[in-house]
Simulated scan of single mutants.
Amino acid sequence: MDLQDGAPHLKLELPVNRALGARYDALVASGDISEDPVQREAVRHLDLLNTRLGETRLASKKSSLGWLFAKKKNQLWASVQGLYMWGGVGRGKTMLMDLFYEVTVIRRKRRVHFHEFMADVHDRIHAHRQAHKRGEVKGDDPIPPVAAQIAEETRLLLFDEFSVTDIADAMILGRLFTQLFELGVIVVATSNVNPDLLYKDGLNRQLFMPFIGLLKSKVSILHLDSPTDYRLEKLAGSPVYLTPLGDEARAQMNDLWQRLTHGMPPHKEELENKGRKIPVPCTAAGAARFTFDDLCMQPLGASDYLRIAHAYSTLFLDDVPVLSKARRNEAKRFITLIDTLYDNGIKLIISAAAEPADLYMSTDGTEAFEFDRTASRLIEMRSEAYLAGERRERHA
């Protein structure tokens, strides 16, 4: 290792870690995915990053771990360049992120939707301010201690759906990530937009611009500009509205899930919305799967459905029953859910007890009128034209 301009540069000659490349090769060989030169380039970048992480971990372990070395150790990790992958829906960004998370040599790692990460940051900031009021901690600036907490817990931060929509987030990102990068935290992120367009048209965006410069100095930018939407390709020729309910519909839903998630193991997670937790029982490769009861029998509203729409580009919804005035609350939630998914261009794969026009039995009342629109949208959402469309733009 030599030091140049105060920054450490490793000269360890280790073979490139091809763990991700091997997983990608296996998926291609099995037919779960198609060979794609743009994805292959992303795999190469991620394998090189994994090698760099392994080298840095080895170098830091060989050095003294005392407090005198702490600063140099942080400099060592801070020299590692992360990766920011951006591109349209269905290009494989989340799949590659999932695979990298599985194979990376780093143990202190955290994979999280950017929105959830920032909600956690705001909670930590609030807790520090309350502790300061009680005289339990010194210093009224919460950013350094919050960054130190995160860096102690996590060496590698993997952000899915990196986006900035909230001015409160925008105003603290620069200071927070300056601290995190100095403490040696490495970032890998996926996003739908070029980093230069983050927080586009946001309030006081000029105050946010230094963060973009900081981010670009700490990550390599890779545009996944493949012309193919692989998620759409997987759906080609397959019905996405399955009725009636039963073993056949369930088997078709399971088959589509396996195809769209490339057979990757699903996991549970939680989304945060305004201090509430939304359980997600099944997610993989950027898709999420719920039952009707999960989303429409629970006290969820429009902002919760919007939070889900911002987190996943494809939604599976199982076991939608025929509704009536006796299930007015569930019907209203279902109407709101479909409106939200439609307005955001989310791909929907659904199993239901009847065709859209027959899902609501009553012919009078507000819900009956509103359900006419829902039925129309459900019909459109299974069309090739809808499935081929990008999600409508939002702040990114």
Rank of each mutant, 00 (worst) to 15 (best):
A288E: 03
A236F: 03
A287T: 03
I346T: 04
T154V: 15
P145I: 11
L207Q: 15
W257R: 01
F292H: 01
V121A: 01
R134V: 12
K277F: 03
I150N: 04
S313R: 03
L378M: 10
S217W: 08
Q75F: 06
S163P: 03
I33K: 10
N74Y: 10
R40T: 15
V188C: 10
P244V: 06
D255Y: 05
R377E: 09
L214F: 07
K109N: 08
G135R: 06
E384Q: 10
R373P: 03
L158A: 07
E182V: 00
A368S: 11
G87Q: 01
F334V: 09
F114I: 06
E367D: 11
V28L: 03
G213V: 10
T336H: 11
G301H: 11
T314H: 05
A396R: 08
D319K: 07
T243S: 15
P210D: 14
H126C: 11
V280I: 10
I335M: 08
E161H: 00
A42C: 13
K274P: 00
L203T: 15
L242Y: 01
I350M: 15
A127K: 06
E367S: 12
G286P: 01
L156P: 03
M95S: 08
K109F: 04
L359C: 12
L157M: 04
S191H: 05
L68G: 09
K72R: 13
N194A: 07
